[in-house]
Design a protein around this nucleic acid. Sequence first.
DNA 1: GGCCCCCC
Length: 745
Amino acid sequence: MVLLSKTQSKSDVELRGQVERVTYHNEENSYTVLKLKANGNPTLITVVGTLIGVTAGEVLKLMGSWVNHAKYGQQFQVSTYETVVPATVKGIERYLGSGLIKGIGHVFAKRLVEKFGADTLNIIENSIERLSEVDGIGTKRLSMIQTAWAQQRDIKDIMLFLHGYGVSTTYAIKIYKQYGKDSIKTVQLNPYRLATDIYGIGFLTADKIARTLGFDEGSELRAEAGILYVLHQLADEGHVYYPYEPLIAKCMDVLGMSREQIVKAFGTIAYEKKITIEDISTDDEVLINNKAVYLTKYYVCETSITENLMDLYTRSKTLRNFDHVKALLWVQKELNIKLHPMQEEAVRQSFDKKILIITGGPGTGKTTILNSIIKIYKQLGQRILLTAPTGRAAKRLSETTGLEAKTIHRLLDYSFKDGGFKKNDKNKLETDLVIVDECSMVDTILMHHFLKSVPAAATLILVGDVDQLPPVGAGFVLRDIINSERFPLVKLTEIFRQSKNSLIIVNAHKINHGEFPILIREVCLHTKDNKEAADFYFFEIEEPENIVKKIVELCTTRIPERFKLEPFKDIQVLTAMNRGTIGISSMNQALQQAMNTSKETLERGGRVFKVFDKVMQLVNNYDKDVFNGDIGRIIRINNELQELTVDFDKRHVVYDYNDLDELTLAYAISVHKAQGSEFPAIVMPIHTQHYIMLQRNLLYTGITRGKKLVVLVGTKRALYLAIKNDKQQLRYTHLKNRLKELNKK
DNA sequence: GGCCCCCC
């Protein structure tokens, strides 16, 4: 069986040579840069990759590929390698003297080869006691050499063994770091451990290794690891637990095993506390046998969220006495605003409740409420923390409130190195009030960590729109907290920003209720003379190619002319998927071609950037102060400096050509990426080519991104399917019922 | 009919 691991590819070539020097070695991840003298090649070759224990003088047999690095030129990128013991006396001397073996330096290396010649390595390997024949090598140094040599040999044996099963050097090193000299034995005994112990190796890879090692398809170890794999997959789909019987059926199907084998393995891993099986009673889920199976991690999170919330809620409030009516009058005067009764109610609740939930769609006045609460709390000398799950949301929260806001990860002081949050139940946040915005995006695990670190005396305000897309991770925390009806909730429905007869808002509500939206046909968008233009249009087009054509036309001419909107700044195309004719990449190409005629281009890895292109940042970059989802325009491509400059809202950010994978074209972006942003106009294809993504939340999130104009282009059938499909809403979670039942039993 | 995506 041919196994290709992540870093290996079929186009790998072989390169042999002696290591001249190791230029760079990162202890943490083993990333190495070295200079290699290859046979018959006068110039030194730069070799990069994950290597361990490699030293100057060693002869390497490398597998990998040639790459062209913008700064450093041609390099050989290693996927796997083997060390070849040097054969010549000179080679052996350099090899031993390179610092490879603790206890041997240049001097002793020289003395050793003088004494034993080409036989030196053989002697170290087989009759090491003979080293004491060399001047200056006593028992102490001898044992040092012996230990170091054995370790080197272990590493090499392990590499060789793992390479034999297609595991790349990167993973081989991780495995070695985890299991040490017992690596081979450990893997042979239970290769499935790799799936849980080694980050980056999943069940499928471990299973392949196991099968090559001769493990039976029906082995108990396979069943146990397989069930955990299936549960992880289900968690990826959003489920915090899965009902017992359907889970068994899934496992039987995925693993090709019998019911008996699965049930038996359930018992074993439940006993090992890897999973938790709970009898739960619930009225709103189809739970056969009323048994829920959790990965224990999620069980712990769900129960801890429940307890922490109820505990926090029932503690007493430490806010000092003040006149609530006066405070409300004062804040409106200070901020020069008039609070709507519902907004006033929200602010008032924040005075005497420990937990408050504020929910509502875009433009319902959440920001005004928050600003009022913050103003009053500040006046009362309270400490305030603001946070949100994404970098962009945090930035926006900071902009609208004028206070610092951090991502939840940053607030909790997440450390990648230590793999955890420094803030927790032992080291809590120091605050009197903490506000979480865009809370609908917070998943079960993050909420667990967050709540652990909220001090008992603090007030917690959760803000979000549950009708938007559910979190990426497992659970639907905000929805469950709201539906538990245990906490004060202010549900904002009144629209402040948009006019009340806006079709965008009317249709957003209709879609949320599973009703078909009111559609204005294209003719209205084409006539320039109707006085009051509507803000929601639908163009019925069947062919995906024609949808693209229509969208290009809308973005370049129709909308700019009719609504006086700027194509780049004001109009955003949103789509559900990356792939397909109406997917992100294809639409970006079409729109780039139509909207940007600049000849100044830059090609990188098959992608083309042009000056004036609309681009989006894909990761949070705190050095550059740009965040995942930020949209800007390329204003300069400088080939000399190998730099590209992007204008983000009048702020110029410079990218080295090596950082360009942080950017993507943004004429069309996914609805997911647009979550948390708003645009004057959005244009969105809706077609069965995106069948799998036709979901109610997605459509709702998409259209509510538009402030002044929404144009849908596609088929009524696709629109209908999206509205009727609220399947995405079904996530197996038990948080709502836990909250309902706690202290009520 | 098989996809979207957060954080460090």
